[in-house]
């Protein structure tokens, strides 16, 4: 053991970098959040939870992220099951590559793609005008943001769920089948319980990613009232550092906590199996 311990020193650069450029700065940011902004009479943390315009923004962000997460899981599940269960499907590799390519797109690009599809000059608007005569523009509001979130969450989720579906022992499903269970019952009684851990973990990852997304909103329009935009506004437009800091810390803690709890739950169900 003593021989091994000598190796520890080579992890030092990573630890030092993390402490100097992340943990200590974050602690300082948390400290700034405790300060009282100019012209106010309470700490920024207090303002953040008491002032409607801040917690409204928080509620918007949570609701939108939750909705996008649920929609992503519902759409990704049949896709993942199909791809996992048909390893010999012709063109599967191409489909997989197409599904995974958008993993590398940053939020700004996703926002631009949403504008191309559903913006003023978008395909959706053109189609809608041609078919019904009414314009249909979704890009610059909550609906556009929701579409953008789906866009970057789907590729992230499909890979994770595919691995989970491949991990299901097919004999469980066959056993249920010989015991008389219909496809629907097999899905509900055997498959969903086996996927609970993966769905929880993927859901948490989606939620945390959506909560902190900035680039997509930034491209779609800075008038959409979600937390990352509020933080950005407070910092750049109002120079209100304490509130920006307090909101960042609250957002950071919230996303980290969701991920942490979901991952421990997923690990526990994985061990339970």
């Amino acid at each position: 053991m003593g021989r091994r311990r000598a190796w520890l020193v080579i992890a030092a650069p990573a630890v030092v970098l993390f402490l100097a450029f992340w943990l200590l700065p974050m602690a300082k940011l948390a400290g700034i959040g405790a300060a009282t902004p100019q012209g106010m009479d309470a700490s920024a943390y207090w303002l953040v939870v008491t002032q409607p315009r801040y917690w409204q923004s928080l509620i918007n962000t949570v609701a939108l992220s939750l909705g996008a997460t649920l929609a992503t899981l519902v759409i990704a599940l049949p896709v993942s099951r199909f791809l996992a269960r048909h390893p010999d499907f012709p063109g599967r590799r191409v489909l997989m590559s197409l599904l995974l390519f958008p993993l590398a797109f940053p939020g700004v690009v996703v926002g631009f793609l949403v504008i191309l599809a559903t913006g003023r000059q978008g395909v959706l608007n053109t189609l809608s005008k041609a078919l019904s005569g009414d314009p249909m523009v979704l890009a610059y509001g909550m609906a556009g943001l929701f579409i953008g979130y789906l866009y970057f969450l789907l590729p992230r989720t499909i890979g994770v769920l595919m691995t989970a579906v491949e991990g299901i022992d097919k004999h469980w499903l066959e056993a249920a089948q010989t015991l008389g269970a219909s496809p629907w019952r097999r899905f509900v009684d055997i498959e969903l319980p086996a996927l609970t851990g993966a769905l929880t973990a993927a859901g948490a990852m989606c939620f945390a990613t959506a909560m902190g997304a900035f680039g997509t909103v930034f491209t779609l329009g800075t008038r959409i009232d979600v937390l990352p935009i509020t933080i950005y506004d407070e910092f750049t437009n109002y120079a209100n550092l304490p509130v920006a800091a307090a909101l960042s810390v609250v957002l950071g803690l919230a996303t980290w906590a969701v991920l942490y709890v979901a991952n421990s739950l997923a690990a526990r169900t994985a061990r339970g199996n």
């Binding site: 022992d169 469980w172 066959e174 089948q177 010989t178």
Partner: peptide, 18 residues
């Protein structure tokens, strides 16, 4: 299979973990 009324013991047993 679900309508054949056969009882099957699978290799490795395939017991439902949930």
């Amino acid at each position: 299979p679900e309508a054949r009324g056969v009882g099957v013991v699978f290799q490795g047993y395939a017991l439902f973990p949930n």
